[in-house]
């Protein structure tokens, strides 16, 4: 494994399987009465969050604490970033404090990559702009593998705002590595320009893709990143690309529904679909802690000199 986790595309098949297998063993830790392991005692993990986040930050914090690492949380609000400090100076400050790993979320694509050149510790990308979110892809793959039994040859549809989604990109790269067949489904305006070089198929027709999918991952429509009108109205988007009860009925009986959260209920996913037993949405959150424990263990558990 590399020292950093910046892109899901950097993971070889063996790396990815090692992370998933490690997570499989660690999942049992959260079923115990004592949920803590001593493995990362004396290591410091800094959560550096320049963008709002609830589940990812809490998830990384819980993961680090279950491995006995010291956790320092840093959010841009109320820090010297609001006084104009640059990313580099923030990084050097963290370096001086002896951070063994920096978990970074940033609105600018590529920020974790830059950060990795400035600090000695491991850098874990927790979402950078519209680029990547590798631990989300890992936890999605983990959730799918647990529900579907395996990923080789499985058909996965990723539906919605692909253009603004770091989750989609990371998932396409990782699922391809793991042997799944991914189809992106979105209106043409919400697909990135270079999508034809991604290792996946593309469709504009959700109704055609649903009946042959083993898993359907719905993406949030990211209004906060939309600076133009990408579709005529929310109602029209929801009609054509939302997963409602009727569409849900067209899916194979054992197919699962996923969503990285936070959801817009009624927009990309109907409430009753989100709450159905075939939805893995709550599981994904629990699996998030497990997969992040696995990543932190594999990056920091060994010799990091």
């Amino acid at each position: 494994m590399n020292r950093d986790l910046i892109s899901a595309g950097d993971l070889t098949r063996d790396d990815a399987l090692l992370i998933l297998d490690t997570a499989e063993e660690l999942a049992r830790v959260s079923e115990r009465s004592i949920k803590k392991l001593p493995t990362l005692r004396g290591r410091t993990v800094v959560n550096l969050f320049f963008e709002d986040s609830t589940r990812t930050r809490i998830s990384f914090e819980a993961a680090a604490k279950r491995l006995s690492a010291d956790v320092i949380n840093f959010s841009a609000k109320g820090s010297s970033v609001s006084k104009g400090e640059s990313l580099k100076d923030t990084a050097l400050t963290l370096e001086a404090m002896g951070a063994d790993a920096v978990v970074i979320r940033h609105a600018a694509s590529g920020a974790p990559h830059r950060l990795a050149t400035w600090v000695h510790g491991s850098v874990v990308n927790a979402g950078d702009g519209t680029h990547e979110h590798p631990t989300q892809a890992l936890l999605d793959a983990f959730s799918m593998r647990r529900r579907l039994g395996g990923l080789d040859g499985r058909k996965i549809a990723i539906v919605g705002d692909v253009l603004h989604s770091r989750v989609a990109r990371s998932n396409v790269l990782l699922l391809h590595t793991l042997g799944a067949e991914v189809t992106l489904v979105a209106p043409p305006t919400l697909l990135p320009v270079a999508v034809d070089i991604w290792p996946c198929a593309v469709s504009y027709d959700l109704d055609a893709v649903l009946p042959k999918s083993d898993a359907v991952m719905m993406l949030r429509v990211q209004k906060e990143r939309m600076n133009a009108s990408y579709f005529p109205s929310e109602r029209e988007y929801s009609r054509r690309y939302g997963l409602d009860r009727d569409r849900f009925a067209k899916m194979p009986d054992d197919a699962i529904v996923m969503h990285p959260g936070p959801m817009n209920r009624g927009m990309e996913i109907a409430a009753e679909v989100a709450d159905s037993p075939r939805s893995t949405i709550v599981e994904q959150v629990a699996n998030g802690v497990t997969i992040r424990m696995a990543v932190l263990y594999l990056l920091l558990g060994g010799d990091t000199a």
């Binding site: 494994m1 297998d21 490690t22 263990y297 990056l299 920091l300 558990g301 060994g302 010799d303 990091t304």
Partner: peptide, 9 residues
């Protein structure tokens, strides 16, 4: 643990 790469579990 710190005398080598992280081990599989």
């Amino acid at each position: 643990l710190r005398q080598g790469p992280a081990r599989p579990l």
